[in-house]
Amino acid sequence: MSSNSIWARMWKKRQIYLFISPFFILFGIFQLTPMVWSFYLSFHEWNGLGAPEFIGLGNYRFLLRDKVFHSALRNTVIYWLANSLAIIPLALILASLLNHTWLRAKRLIRTTVFLPYVTATVAVGLIFNMLFDYNSGLINSLLELIGLAPVPWLTSVQTSKLPVIFLNIWRITPWHALILFSGLQAIPHDLYEAATVDGAGALRRFFSITIPSLMPILFFSFITLTVDAFRIFTEPYILTQGGPANSSISIVQYLYINGFSIFKLGLASAVGYALTLILLIVSFGQIIAMRRESGLMEGN
């Protein structure tokens, strides 16, 4: 294929390039420069004032041996695994429940189950802190009621990740449920009716019609969930501040502390690049694994 014909083909599709151009223009202006700059900065030591000092791979070497970063990495992987296992199935169940045509009070129910994502994080932080409080929290009161010992949810190194995971599932499941629900709405009803006539049960309809039709959206959910889980910040920040003793700290929180409270901006940049690298590996692994189902990389 000669280069001429490529240019000709591109010219023919100029309107399509126009359609996708806003994103790439905005990316070029608002993301690319910061990315290049923070790559440069990741080899420097800088507190935000004066001239950055070149330290080579010093920041990356520090990350390799820093036990707080290791803890952040370990916690983040745990958050990701817990989220992946819980959120998509729950969201799928919720979306399916909502998709029944005979359901009454639809708007009220849909709005109510969506409330966790709407509620301001300041309020959520306070309320989950009270729920999981060791002395007077509702959850421990319930545990005691059924004869179990209270759990130091937020104050023990062993359990502090659990409230973070619960809060994350509670808050993010409605987001994915709404996405999946929009996908369910696009599945034509006659498909189900035909299957019912053929004698397929609810479960078989779910696996032979719903799941395959939903695949592109499910793929979107999986990738988004991975990206979000690796960038988890809000939940540990408002519940435990990453503690006690960094037992619930996440990578972005580690980045945030370095960048915004102790002003080690070079190190924060290095953390950003480490995280990007990890995410690229994990999510492109997912893309390749789900290549066929995702409808990605088809054609051409």
Binding site: S156, V157, P244, S261
Partner: peptide
């Protein structure tokens, strides 16, 4: 000292948590 505070605090938190 802002950084030192985060380091010292982590060890005290670990103590308070009984670790």
């Amino acid at each position: 000292d802002a950084e030192a505070d985060t380091i010292i605090s982590a060890e005290i938190e670990s103590y308070v948590a009984g670790n």
